[in-house]
Computed example of a mutant assay.
Amino acid sequence: MTATDAVTRRVFASYLFIGLLLAATGFIWSVSLGVTDLRWNDVLQGLLGGKETKEQLVISTIRVPRALVAALAGAALAVAGALMQAMTRNAFASPQIFGINAGASFFVVLFIVFFPGISSSALVFAAFAGAFMGGLLVFILGYSNDHRTPVQLALAGIAVSMLLSAMTEGFIVLYDNQTKNVLFWLAGAVHNGTWKDVHTVIPWSLTGMMIALLLSRSLTILSLGDDIARGLGQNILFIRLAVSCTVIMLAGSAVSIVGPIGFVGLIVPHIVRHWVGVDYRFILPLTAVFGSVLLLYADIVSRFISYPFESPVGIVTTGIGAPYLLYLLLRRRGRL
């Protein structure tokens, strides 16, 4: 092990500890907030399985699944963004910017309209199909003479996202009876998270993250360039295919439950790379942890926007992510 590797591992361990501490604190804080005011010792007793009380019932049936959904969705969206940025070597890549969230949302609404009463587990597959379609459209439109530029792909992604979002809203207007509860979800919401949602998203998100970790070494090599990766014996086509399927699995499962929450997959990987460099063995675990942290605390902030009423968590992530995207664009053009 070189001195640089040793330093990177120490930095990784430090940030991992900080991230897990922030995630645990955010989880407990999230569970303690709500219309029914709970003290932290009530929360801890409820989490540890104390005697059955009204507070314990609120914690176990409402607060805990909500916090788990936020943590799982945040981790899934952040890792999906990190994978996309590694695969494309594009600073602007994220599930929202590249049309994956919009495609997943469109297909979810489509299935809700034409298949009323469809289960949340079946909606996951609809989201997978939509995520694939949205991403494919962006890559087709973003290519020019077999070449991709970051800004060109980002512009294609924004155009496709706007088109799919407009089509989604059109379906909501035309079929308002079937989609009356969808508008809040479209802005990104975790407040309706249930144990059924947790059970739906857990297998897909955990499987996707495990595959991502298995691909981490190949992604680090791929980030050096296709020619170097081929020279080191990497199968570029297989890696990109595996990464694409993993991104669809992670983003599609998250969007089907919490809606197209934006910018989590853009912000978190950038910050993590600044901390630990370009080794995806370190980037991916930290991205998952801090993706959970971001969405947990964004959900907490969203509760105070129009307290005691709920606000979409997507408002908070967009408020953070939109200026960050502008910063990246200006830096790319040499203005910062």
Score class of each variant (00 low, 15 high):
residue 55 E to S: 11
residue 72 L to G: 02
residue 78 A to Y: 08
residue 65 P to I: 06
residue 74 G to L: 02
residue 53 T to A: 10
residue 92 F to L: 14
residue 72 L to M: 15
residue 92 F to C: 00
residue 92 F to N: 11
residue 56 Q to A: 09
residue 83 L to A: 08
residue 59 I to M: 11
residue 77 L to A: 06
residue 59 I to H: 01
residue 93 A to L: 11
residue 61 T to R: 10
residue 53 T to R: 13
residue 93 A to R: 05
residue 64 V to Y: 09
residue 56 Q to L: 04
residue 73 A to K: 00
residue 66 R to K: 04
residue 79 V to T: 07
residue 91 A to Y: 11
residue 91 A to E: 15
residue 72 L to D: 03
residue 71 A to C: 06
residue 86 A to N: 01
residue 88 T to E: 05
residue 89 R to P: 11
residue 84 M to D: 04
residue 61 T to K: 09
residue 71 A to F: 01
residue 61 T to D: 11
residue 57 L to W: 14
residue 54 K to N: 15
residue 57 L to A: 14
residue 81 G to N: 10
residue 55 E to Q: 12
residue 74 G to T: 09
residue 59 I to Q: 05
residue 74 G to Y: 03
residue 69 V to C: 05
residue 83 L to Y: 04
residue 58 V to E: 15
residue 81 G to A: 12
residue 78 A to N: 01
residue 71 A to S: 03
residue 82 A to Q: 03
residue 73 A to C: 08
residue 52 E to K: 15
residue 76 A to Q: 01
residue 86 A to S: 15
residue 90 N to E: 13
residue 69 V to L: 02
residue 65 P to C: 02
residue 93 A to N: 04
residue 57 L to F: 15
residue 68 L to Q: 02
residue 59 I to F: 10
residue 89 R to T: 06
residue 53 T to I: 14
residue 74 G to R: 07
residue 56 Q to D: 06
residue 71 A to I: 00
residue 64 V to W: 05
residue 94 S to G: 11
residue 88 T to W: 13
residue 94 S to T: 10
residue 83 L to F: 05
residue 62 I to A: 09
residue 84 M to N: 01
residue 78 A to L: 12
residue 93 A to C: 07
residue 89 R to W: 08
residue 68 L to A: 07
residue 94 S to Y: 03
residue 80 A to Y: 02
residue 87 M to Q: 15
residue 82 A to S: 13
residue 64 V to S: 03
residue 76 A to P: 01
residue 89 R to G: 10
residue 61 T to I: 07
residue 60 S to P: 14
residue 52 E to G: 07
residue 79 V to D: 00
residue 85 Q to R: 11
residue 63 R to T: 13
residue 70 A to K: 06
residue 65 P to T: 04
residue 61 T to C: 03
residue 79 V to N: 01
residue 62 I to Y: 14
residue 75 A to N: 03
residue 64 V to F: 08
residue 75 A to C: 09
residue 83 L to H: 01
residue 87 M to K: 05
residue 76 A to V: 00
residue 94 S to I: 06
residue 70 A to V: 09
residue 66 R to V: 07
residue 67 A to E: 06
residue 65 P to M: 00
residue 76 A to F: 00
residue 52 E to V: 15
residue 61 T to H: 09
residue 64 V to N: 09
residue 70 A to W: 02
residue 68 L to T: 02
residue 92 F to R: 06
residue 89 R to H: 10
residue 70 A to C: 07
residue 76 A to H: 01
residue 83 L to M: 08
residue 66 R to H: 10
residue 71 A to V: 04
residue 70 A to Q: 11
